[in-house]
Simulated assay, not measured.
Amino acid sequence: MSNQIVVVGHLRVAEDDRDAYVADCVEVVCQARAAPGCLDFVVAADPLEPDRVAVVERWASRADLDAFRSSGPPDEQWARIRDVQVVELDIPQHV
């Protein structure tokens, strides 16, 4: 049985762009949630820091995550990100 992959952390974008950035992520969230092996995928505005966007992903396997990432977000979306602080956790599945 393969391990579950959890991605958690945050992105930093311009304060005046944060809400638009999160809104522009709706399509990516929909694509992720429809992707094989996606167990959860959330991109949300931080309620305290005006430039911070929280990210949480859960995938059934590394292969599922890698397959989704190969179809990743458009370059213009990446260009808006000023900093990325995320970790990937490899979580053993228990029977």
Rank of each mutant, 00 (worst) to 15 (best):
A60G: 04
A60V: 10
G37S: 07
D51R: 01
P36R: 13
C25D: 05
V8E: 14
D51G: 00
N3W: 10
R52K: 13
A79R: 11
V86E: 01
A32M: 11
H94W: 13
S2C: 02
L48P: 01
Q93N: 07
A63E: 07
F41T: 04
Q77R: 15
V95W: 12
A45Q: 03
D19M: 04
S61M: 03
F68A: 04
D75W: 08
A44D: 12
A23W: 09
L11F: 13
D66R: 00
S71Q: 15
W59R: 01
D16P: 06
H10D: 15
L65I: 04
S70K: 02
R80N: 08
M1C: 10
W78Q: 12
H10R: 13
A63I: 01
G72I: 01
P36H: 06
A54D: 04
C30G: 14
E88P: 02
D16C: 09
V28C: 11
D64L: 00
G72K: 03
P92D: 11
A23V: 09
D51W: 02
V53R: 01
V26W: 13
S71P: 08
V7K: 12
A20I: 08
S71R: 10
Q93S: 07
V8F: 10
G72P: 05
Q77A: 14
Q4A: 09
V8K: 13
S71E: 14
V87I: 07
Q4V: 11
V13I: 07
V13N: 02
V29N: 10
S2Q: 02
V29D: 12
A14S: 11
W59F: 03
D51F: 00
M1F: 10
V13E: 10
V86C: 04
V42G: 07
A60W: 04
R58H: 08
V53W: 05
P73L: 08
Q77D: 07
R69M: 14
L89C: 05
Q31T: 01
V53K: 00
S2H: 02
R12I: 11
D83K: 02
E57G: 08
D83W: 05
R58C: 05
R33V: 08
A20E: 15
A67K: 01
D40C: 01
C25F: 05
